[in-house]
Design a protein around this nucleic acid. Structure first.
Lengths: 155, 155
DNA sequence: TCATATACTTCAAATTATGAACTATTCAAT
DNA sequence: ATTGAATAGTTCATAATTTGAAGTATATGA
């Protein structure tokens, strides 16, 4: 009776197994970012990868579950290094669109390609398994972004 | 020809979909740690969850793809707050075993339970899907830990 | 036209991670 | 035994990253 919870926890529920797998993969991917491109920081890599098309900073903040000031700092660094340019959003002149330069596109292609390789090596999954994992991961991501940022209750 | 790479990248390969899903879930889980227990930092939560049984600090470092000094800092904080105790490893007196106190076990059970709930809410997966995702995540984790820390080539 | 909300910026402070130099212990080979 | 090299963990100064509060400019609605 008293052990029902501890036992279940001790034997690691599927949820905890899933979480630990996610953490291991996340940490491994972060670690391997270090070995690729020396002049890009981790948040800069994240942002580049997200910029498959011009996006508003607020969209990126929501996407990365981050706050505006963090996005500003990362965008500043990428802009100064020539990877992207800020353009006013014509439909709302308060907002900026972050647009990759040619240099930025090149860096992004390299990163995305390298990340794909890394995923293969780190995960050890074959093509079918990768496809299945990607399907579930996409579903999860949709759900996170849908439920994320409750706007009102920021702690 | 020239578009084959860009096209594939633009349409987001399964690997990138998988990575983005993993990042979204990781960030969401981190975010929700903030809403649970106020007197534990993120790395402290990670360490508590890992301590399902007494472990050496080096094992934790390998497990968290981290370095010894980081583990020391986190263990110091948890020890000082009464969540764990250091015991010399009888089989190697250079090493410490980190052992949860009763308070630590209680906190861990709470965290693990909360993390399970969070996974459900954040992922939106049902029980079957969760089991399948957990299976793949475990496989990935095994592979990461197997291939991780190449010892020699630290960058 | 005024009040309020939104998009982003600035900046100082807090958190977290890291590497290099150090102590204590172990292990292997004399 | 004794020495030397390797390992486990610690200390500490520094770097990287994130955050929240206050500010500017633009939009929206009454």
């Amino acid at each position: 009776m008293s052990d029902s919870i501890s036992d279940r926890l001790g034997r690691l529920s599927p949820e905890i197994q899933a979480i630990m797998g996610v953490y291991a993969l996340y940490w491994k991917l972060e670690e391997t970012f270090d070995t690729i491109e020396t002049d890009l920081s981790h948040p800069e890599c994240h942002m580049l990868i997200k910029l498959d098309e011009p996006k508003r900073m607020g969209v990126l903040a929501a996407d990365m579950l981050s706050v505006p000031s963090t996005i500003t700092a990362t965008a500043d660094a990428l802009e100064q290094a020539g990877y992207l340019a800020r353009q006013r959003d014509p439909s709302d002149r308060r907002a900026w669109l972050l647009v990759l330069t040619e240099q930025g596109k090149g860096a992004r292609d390299m990163l995305v390609s390298a990340a794909g390789d890394l995923f293969h090596k780190a995960s050890g999954l074959n093509a079918d398994e990768t496809a299945e994992f990607a399907r579930m991961a996409s579903k999860i991501r949709d759900n996170v972004l849908k439920t994320g940022i409750p706007e009102g209750l920021k702690k």
